[in-house]
Design a protein around this nucleic acid. Structure first.
Length: 848
DNA sequence: ACCCCCCTATGGAGGGGGTAT
DNA sequence: CTATACCCCCTCCATAGGGGG
């Protein structure tokens, strides 16, 4: 650790990044908080810095922007951050101790070394980097060529980063700067970073783990690592470890600071200010802010692949500024990029959006906008045992029916390939955000047909997959596994609020950024159904994947088929109604048709609601119970007035609504109670949701969007839709919640303006929950989202929200099929389950 | 063609520590 | 507040299958 620290120090001093922000815009927004000036961060690594510096300004920004810091944000004012930090991460943040303070001048961001950073860093680091990453990285090579421009260049860097596990995290920075010490990286890397929160130091501690992991993997890892080492060596040995931090650091520094600085308010303001162009910046900025949360690291990408690559930093890097990237990010996501060698463009694109524009990962984005619709054609299985850094890979996430998840972008007629981003998000009721305890893990090998490359965004690993016109903008996701970070590592991060225990459900979140002629970027996002990642849960806990009914008259009596896993003969299905304060208002057990039930399906009779005279739909929950502590997540259900056909309401259920309609025929929308409090409900949300365009899109999108609204309602989509498990609910929830049901179906849009800011407030709670990441980010996020989401209504509206669309798409598959198959009798389509509202609650409930 | 070795992908399970009661 | 039982997290073991040398 010391070393790390030392290193950090070493580095820190010098580096200061100025976040320039090229974008004026950004600055504004951003930072408002921040201050106008640019923020200079001291980075630990010289290299990076240098590079950065070189890059300088604008360009840099962009890249930086990419980073969380969002240079953009910075722009105007600059904030220098000083980190006391000792550790690499700190570096970034604190890096130059001395300096930093000075810097502070403006704002003092002194980042607490700990917290802010950690959070951000933590997440990322650990996760991202984690040894695995390294591995993965290794794999990388194998796979693909690196087109990424930079990649080659990057490679060095990358490698460093990569090599160590941690490195990954650190990658960028680390590698560079420090030279990353090989050693560290290896060991600690991931955790370390995290653990360390303290950053580096800690790393040490953890480092191990990975290392410790030793096992075969270690071998592997080692192998990988070794490979990496080579690189790392280049970097400096010491550094590497730090790296993890580093990345984060860098980013962190940026981000964190930003975050800190930025208040939601500021963000909001910024957002307001932001513009398309800015978008990027803005995004960047926001990102940073967010960063705090998970992402901190801006875009830096870590992974390095062997070959290449690349590092990817993804976004950040613009191709243009290789230097920057390199230095800074090493990763330059660019490089990292894909393996897919052939299509250079692919990378290029990444670059495009990469830069600043990309919205923070915790922003809520619509799944469709204007003509574009990002859909998950094939959903992943509900269970996937994630692997620890100490284990070998447990393979790629698979689809229910075999094969792998499939994602497709509809409505895109251009000939230019795009980059699909994938990260692991939360699956609780709160807004969708990067999961603090899980990271996407790149899978490579013969069995993998889809090229990909890893990048880091504010401590969240993001897998970038090319979407090619020749493949109809469709990608088979056979290259994505899920890495579990140790709870202890993550929870130690400063700022982390979420707990890892029993927080084992995730969603695969896909994003696409489409540049518009106008210069704006339309960003779409789709989340998969929840995926249970724990070994135990997968083996023992009942899980409801789909339910044939979303609503039922208060008198009950209707048959509902539940599809899922781990059902037992003695499984009970309990309906419960809770007050907002959590008090149990009602609880009853449904009759289970044991004869018609199997381990993967339960046929039950919806129990009579406690009040037969309800005049409005009542939202309740139900869960399958196999025993004291073996309960499924809560599923949503709505009782409607007996005389009135109803439609679903819940926010989550938005998706469902359509289904509901179909079933009952009426299309009435319920009003659901939004799970999410009122906040969500706000109009803003609704409008915005759909469209959140990132950066710029906005205007454009809006237009498109707008129209849609009308369409939305109409569109069958609603009707059709099956439910989407998607995250959407969550996301939307905040954003959309109510909307869906309302006349305008899901139109939720992200709001911009005020709303945004407002939103933040809303989110906060939830977001925070997720973990540090979320927290920090949240604030930021909020701002962003608002901004981006310009258009409230989207064309999709019909589809409702993107989610809805997705859902629909999905639904059909699952729901319908399932229903039919399962029960002929069941008329309704099965909708997919939503997730429990909140994992946390669930857990709590469990206790009960 | 066969043998080894290396890897990846999985399944399973135990220990330790945290939680719940 | 303490003691005990239980549960979950994380690590480690073991095995199968494929590929390369």
């Amino acid at each position: 650790m010391k070393s790390a620290e030392e290193e950090a120090y070493a580095f820190t001093p010098n580096v200061t990044l100025s976040l320039p922000l090229g974008n004026p815009c950004l600055p504004l927004q951003f930072h408002g908080l921040q201050s106008g000036p640019a923020i200079s961060v001291s980075v630990s690594e010289p290299h990076s810095y240098d590079a950065q510096e070189d890059v300088n300004a604008a360009a840099f920004y962009s890249s930086p922007g990419a980073r969380p810091n969002g240079a953009p944000t910075l722009e105007s004012p600059r904030i220098e951050i000083t980190a006391y930090g000792q550790f690499p991460e700190d570096e970034v943040e604190q890096s130059s101790l001395p300096v930093a303070k000075q810097v502070n001048s403006i704002v003092t961001l002194t980042l607490p070394s700990g917290e802010g950073y950690r959070d951000p860093s933590c997440l990322s680091p650990a996760s991202s980097v984690s040894s695995r990453s390294c591995h993965s990285e290794a794999s990388f090579e194998s796979g693909f060529s690196y087109n990424y421009d930079n990649s080659p260049q990057n490679s060095p860097w990358q490698s460093p980063s990569v090599s160590p596990k941690g490195s990954t995290l650190a990658l960028p920075g680390e590698g560079c700067a420090p030279g990353g010490s090989p050693r560290h990286s290896p060991s600690t890397s991931p955790r370390t970073s995290i653990t360390d929160d303290t950053w580096m130091g800690q790393r040490n501690s953890r480092p191990n783990s990975p290392c410790g992991a030793k096992r075969k993997y270690s071998l592997n890892g080692s192998g990988t690592q070794h490979k990496q080492y080579p690189y790392s060596p280049n970097h400096s040995p010491g550094p590497s470890p730090h790296t993890s931090p580093r990345l984060s650091v860098t980013e962190e520094t940026w981000l964190p600071n930003t975050n800190q600085y930025t208040n939601s308010a500021i963000l909001a303001a910024i957002n307001a200010l932001t513009t398309d162009g800015v978008v990027d910046l803005g995004e960047g900025i926001p990102m940073k802010a967010r960063k705090t949360s998970l992402e901190h690291s801006p875009t830096v990408s870590l992974k390095v692949e062997p070959g290449s690559s690349e590092l990817v930093s993804g976004h950040l890097c613009d191709d243009d500024h290789p230097s920057n990237r390199m230095s800074l990010k090493k990763e330059g996501y660019c490089g990292g990029f894909l393996d897919v060698p052939q299509h250079p463009y692919s990378w290029s694109k990444p670059k495009q959006y990469v830069s600043p524009s990309v919205p923070a990962l915790d922003w809520q984005l619509p799944s469709s906008s204007g003509p574009y619709s990002l859909q998950i054609e094939v959903q992943p299985k509900s269970h996937h045992r994630a692997h620890y850094e100490t284990e070998g890979s447990r393979g790629a996430v698979k689809a229910l029916a075999g094969g792998h998840p499939v994602v497709q972008l509809h409505g895109y007629m251009e000939n230019e390939p795009l980059t699909l981003q994938l990260f692991i998000g939360t699956a609780d009721d709160r807004l969708l955000r990067p999961h603090a305890f899980y990271q996407v893990h790149r899978i490579t090998g013969k069995t993998v047909s889809t090229p990909s490359h890893e990048t880091l965004h504010n401590n969240t690993k993001v897998l970038e997959i090319p979407l090619l016109p020749e493949n109809n903008m469709r990608a088979i996701i056979d290259c994505a596994g899920i890495l579990k970070l140790r709870n202890s590592d993550i929870e130690l991060r400063k700022g982390e609020t979420d707990i890892g225990r029993k927080n084992t459900r995730v969603r695969m979140v896909f994003r696409i950024h489409i540049n518009q002629p106008t210069g704006r970027t339309v960003s779409l996002q789709v989340a998969s159904n929840p995926i249970e990642c724990s070994q135990r849960s997968a083996q023992e806990l009942p899980l409801v994947d789909q339910q044939s009914l979303e609503t039922c008259p208060a008198h009950g009596g209707e048959k509902m088929l539940l599809n899922g896993h781990n059902f037992q003969h003695d499984s009970k299905v309990v309906f419960v109604e809770k007050a907002q304060d959590g008090h149990h208002l009602w609880e009853t057990e449904a009759k289970v048709d044991r004869d018609a039930s199997k381990t993967n399906s339960l046929l039950i009779e919806v129990p009579q609601y406690r009040n037969q005279r309800i005049s409005t739909p009542v939202h309740v929950n139900f869960y399958v119970c196999n025993g004291k502590r073996k309960r499924s997540q809560c599923q949503h259900f709505t009782y409607v007035p007996a005389s009135v056909p109803t439609i679903k309401t819940e926010p989550h259920d938005d998706f469902d609504a359509p289904l509901m309609c179909t079933q009952h025929g009426s299309g009435v929308a319920l009003h659901p109670k939004p799970y999410f409090p009122p906040q969500v409900m706000t109009p803003m949300m609704s409008a915005d949701l759909r469209q959140c365009v990132v950066g710029g899109a906005y205007p454009v999108t809006q237009d498109r969007l707008t129209p849609k609204p009308s369409s939305l309602p109409t569109s069958s989509s609603p009707s059709t839709s099956p439910k989407l498990h998607d995250l959407s609910p969550p996301h939307f929830a905040k954003c959309l919640p109510a909307v869906p049901h309302s006349p305008l179906p899901h139109i939720s849009i992200i709001q911009e303006t005020p709303g945004r800011y407002a939103l933040p407030s809303l989110y906060p709670p939830s977001s925070s929950s997720s973990s540090p990441t979320s927290q920090p980010s949240t604030p930021t996020d909020a701002p962003f989202s608002p901004t981006h989401c310009v258009t409230p209504v989207q064309p999709v509206s019909g589809s409702t929200s993107p989610d809805a669309q997705q859902q629909q798409a999905k639904v059909p598959e699952r729901g319908r099929s399932s229903l039919q198959e399962d029960d002929g009798s069941l008329t309704l389509a099965i909708s997919i389950k939503q997730e429990p509202q909140e994992l946390d609650q669930m857990y709590l409930d469990d206790g009960e």
